[in-house]
């Protein structure tokens, strides 16, 4: 049986080829393949080309199942910046690759867990759309958690 190849298209219209038996680790792709057989190109409108390259790299890994966990960890560690990880998590969510998504989210949590809220807000550039009074009200509401 010849190996079937699928083509994935990122949001900036770049094309990536991947063998089908590797691509079906993604539940989304598996379902698509099941539905309409041999569709030529699978569009991924929310994934940019850099991230998709990473995902393809991840899917192409050649690891024994028992080393898989370690590999995923190492994989996200090497690309351990939050912007990349968030994109990766987004792509993993869209493609429904649970392992990758968990690993990416875990790494993000690991990175931010030592910082205070203010630092996180500053670093992640989350805009504080509350007035100080409102924020204080929130803190009072959940004072058992602060």
């Amino acid at each position: 049986m010849s190996k079937k190849t699928l083509t994935l298209m990122s949001k900036d219209k770049q094309l990536f080829n991947i063998e089908e038996h590797l691509a079906v680790q993604s539940v989304t792709i598996r379902n698509m393949v099941k539905e309409d057989g041999a569709s030529s190109v699978i569009p991924l409108p929310r994934v940019d080309s850099e991230t998709l390259a990473l995902v393809i790299e991840y899917l192409n890994r050649q690891q024994a199942p028992e080393e898989d966990e370690d590999y995923v960890k190492k994989f996200v560690d090497e690309r351990g910046e939050i912007p990349t990880l968030l994109e990766l998590a987004q792509a993993a969510l869209d493609l429904d690759i649970k392992k990758l998504m968990d690993a990416a989210c875990m790494k993000v949590a690991d990175l931010i867990k030592d910082f205070t809220l203010e630092e996180v807000r500053e670093a992640l550039r989350i805009e504080n759309d509350r007035t100080p009074e409102e924020e204080k009200a929130i803190r009072d509401e959940f004072q058992w958690a602060f």
Partner: peptide
């Protein structure tokens, strides 16, 4: 970690 969590925009809030 500090260097790694720097983002240029509020990406995380826009995530699902």
């Amino acid at each position: 970690n500090r260097a790694r969590i720097i983002t240029k925009e509020d990406r995380i809030s826009n995530l699902p």
